[in-house]
C-alpha cells in the first residue's frame, strides 16, 4: 500500500489543512480591520553645545547681538516686552534662524485658560494659567498674568499650596544661538525659598 492514501488519511490531511488555514486567518484577518498604533517617538531635545552665553532682556539690538560672538544669547521676544514691538521674523532671519515659532504660552492659553476666573485671553500674549499637580497629590493652581508696563515679559505668578502662598515670577524669552536655533527660556524666580514647596 506504499504510495497510496486511504480515505481516512485523506480526511485527516484535509482536516489539518483546514485547521492551518483557520489559524492563519485568525492571525492575519484582524490586522485587515484594525490599525496598530505605534508609540510616537518624542521630539528630539537636541544637545546644547555652547561655551559662552549672554543675557540681554531689554534694549536688545539684534545686529549688535549677531556681531558679538556669544554662542547663545537670551533675549526677550519683543523690544520692550509688548506685542507691538515683537521682533519680526525678518530680524530673526538675520541671525540665520530658519523659522519663528508662535508664543507657546499663547497656544497653551487657548487650550487651558478659557473660562478660568479672572483671566481673559486677550491683549497680553503671555497671559496664561495652568493647573498642575505635584507628586504629593496636592494641587497647585498657577495663575500667570502679563505685565502691562511692557518693560519685560515678566509674568508674576502666585502658587497657592495648602494656604501657603509662594510668590514667584516666570517669564519666557526668545533666545538665539549661533547654531541657528530659537530658544525659549522659562524663568522661574522664587521669592521665598522653594524648599517650602515640600512642606
Amino acid at each position: 500500500m506504499t504510495g497510496s492514501i486511504t480515505t481516512n488519511q485523506h480526511r485527516e490531511m484535509s482536516s489539518r489543512m483546514m485547521t492551518l488555514i483557520l489559524l492563519v486567518l485568525l492571525v492575519f484577518l484582524p490586522r485587515c480591520f484594525y490599525t496598530i498604533e505605534l508609540p510616537v517617538e518624542p521630539p528630539p531635545t537636541g544637545k546644547l553645545e555652547i561655551r559662552t552665553w549672554a543675557y540681554q532682556l531689554q534694549d536688545a539690538d539684534p545686529a549688535a547681538i549677531a556681531q558679538a560672538g556669544f554662542d547663545l544669547v537670551v533675549m526677550d521676544y519683543a523690544r520692550d516686552g509688548s506685542e507691538a514691538t515683537r521682533y519680526p521674523a525678518s530680524q530673526f532671519n538675520t541671525f540665520g534662524v530658519q523659522e519663528q515659532f508662535p508664543s507657546p504660552t499663547s497656544a497653551l492659553e487657548k487650550q487651558r485658560i478659557t473660562g478660568s476666573t479672572g483671566m481673559t485671553a486677550g491683549s497680553i500674549i503671555h497671559q496664561c494659567g495652568w493647573d498642575v499637580k505635584i507628586r504629593n497629590g496636592k494641587g497647585i493652581t498657577l495663575f500667570v498674568s502679563g505685565t502691562p508696563n511692557g518693560k519685560t515679559s515678566c509674568m508674576p505668578i502666585s502658587i497657592k499650596l495648602c494656604s501657603r502662598v509662594l510668590l514667584a515670577s516666570i517669564w519666557t524669552a526668545w533666545t538665539w544661538s549661533n547654531t541657528g536655533r530659537i530658544l525659549i527660556m522659562v524663568k522661574i524666580r522664587f521669592f521665598q525659598k522653594p524648599t517650602q514647596l515640600a512642606e
Binding site: P43, P44, T45, G46, K47, L48, V74, Q98, F101, A168, T175, S177, R181, I182, L183, I184, M185, V186, K187, I188, R189, F190, P194
Partner: peptide, 11 residues
Amino acid sequence: QQPFYIIPQNG
C-alpha cells in the same frame, strides 16, 4: 523637526 532647547532658570 529641528532641535528646540528648553532652559529653565532657577528653582
